[in-house]
């Protein structure tokens, strides 16, 4: 099991499960089962993190990424 917060720059993964209080918002933003997500970069201070999902750019705090389980894509 890999958490979204554990991805490295450039890595891609698929969303497996969301366990967050804010899951509704996350789902609206495109984090749904099987959706492909790619880590673009970390903010200069290391947090938040920029991802690419559903062909756009979304930034999330690390904290919330710990509530999202993903499957790595090779």
């Amino acid at each position: 099991m890999v958490l979204l917060s554990e991805l490295k720059v450039g890595q891609k993964a698929k969303i497996r499960k969301i366990n967050s209080k804010f899951s509704n918002k996350l789902m609206a933003m495109g984090l749904v089962l099987g959706a492909e997500i790619k880590l673009i970069r970390f903010a200069p201070a290391g947090d938040p993190i920029e991802f690419e999902i559903k062909r756009y750019s979304l930034s999330l705090r690390k904290e919330i990424c710990q509530d999202v389980e993903v499957l790595l894509i090779e």
Binding site: K21, F22, K25, L26, L58, S59, R61, I64
Partner: peptide
């Protein structure tokens, strides 16, 4: 109290 999540689109 809880804090807001940071979920922000970078258009």
């Amino acid at each position: 109290g809880e804090r807001s999540p940071f979920i922000l689109e970078l258009g």
